[in-house]
Nucleic acid binder design. Structure first.
Lengths: 201, 201
DNA sequence: TCCTTTAAGGTACGGGAAGTACCGTACGCT
DNA sequence: AGCGTACGGTACTTCCCGTACCTTAAAGGA
């Protein structure tokens, strides 16, 4: 008739959130390479079985944890000029990519490179969805202001600066891309293209 | 006075070439992930000591083996028009990157991402050196033909198409980039930029 | 010719991490 | 109360990187 220490056993969504939280903490603490399944299980107070039952591979858990980590929404900048807006967006992206979180994202991207299903989950985070929308509104506003011809509002043009920034990272590795490079991307590529888009042909 | 099986022990450059060759064979057979140090040593008929004495890490051997594998030099195309040359170069790069060898290169790039010294060794292979030179000569010829203004001959412009192609791979993963995308890159980004470069401002 | 130094060969081992297998047991539902 | 499902615990298999240590062949000088 003694009171035994009560063991509360978490299940379903409850446990799932605990695992994701633990994984996200491991990610920020040790990066993707250091996010061990054992450590995640231990931090979540569970075991690897519960994890593998939900995510079949380490990369899948990593991606889920990353999304759990990064759901802050930043509004589209509005500086009054196309150049200002573009630079602002690029600088934000550069800050993100050069931060520890950016390193994690790049590691995840590499780990998911040969798994289309996983890549799909990352596209949004890697400058796919919301980021692209921001560039579109930015371009549209420029057209409304008369700063750019309507032909410039086009997917490839909108995606161009982020593509170039990503390229810089691929060639340089870890450190942040210098601000001069961002300015060059805007002044020597993006703006000339946008403005010239209606001129020739 | 019996003849004993003669053991010829390779040394120096001799052994080094054998190791590189074995590593390159492993790379093509199993990819970078499958290029185990043990397997390389076994295939080369030696042991891991001899390897680690020369390359301190697996990635270093991988890079060296890749260079050993890819030293074919292709001349700069000359189709008579800037558009034709650009498309040709892009198509070649696309073929390389979508081949097994391209997958290896991308894995190596990911593995070397946090080691500047190793990254440096790969820059040339990843569209850095010779590739860039090709784009420069291509642009210069276009200027000579009157197809482009002299201001277009500029590093960022020259590197642009390869950057965009690389970006496509980062977002898509393994499969080859469709030819339409290459055409779009040339017709909607590269050529408008080159032509517009002298027009505005 | 012998002797010393250097580099190969052989082998085993430490260490870490992914993913799997089992089994007993709490939970929630009927 | 009974039952199926999912969790906890633990141990284990499998890989593979990198290192340690010792023996032995090769190369070159005294």
């Amino acid at each position: 008739m003694r009171t035994v220490a009560v063991e509360r056993r978490r299940r379903g969504a409850d446990l799932e959130q605990a695992i994701l939280r633990a994984a996200a903490e491991e990610l920020t603490a040790s990066g993707y390479a250091g996010m061990t399944m054992d450590k995640v299980a231990q931090r979540a107070g569970t075991n690897k079985n519960a994890i593998y039952r939900r995510w079949p591979q380490r990369a899948a858990l990593g991606i889920a944890a990353y999304k759990h980590l990064a759901d802050a929404r930043t509004p589209t900048p509005d500086t009054g000029s196309l150049r200002g807006d573009a630079l602002e967006l690029l600088r934000r992206a550069n800050a993100t990519w050069s931060s520890p979180r950016g390193a994690i994202l790049r590691d995840l991207l590499a780990a998911a490179a040969d798994e289309p299903a996983l890549l799909e989950l990352l596209r949004e985070q890697a400058g796919g969805g919301a980021m692209n929308a921001a560039w579109f509104t930015l371009l549209s506003r420029a057209v409304a202001r008369g700063e750019a011809p309507p032909e410039a509002v086009q997917p490839r043009v909108a995606a161009l600066p982020m593509m170039l920034l990503r390229g810089e990272y691929a060639l340089r590795g870890v450190p942040a891309v210098p601000d001069e490079v961002l300015v060059e991307i805007v002044d020597e590529i993006f703006l000339p293209l946008v403005r010239g888009r209606g001129v020739t042909d």
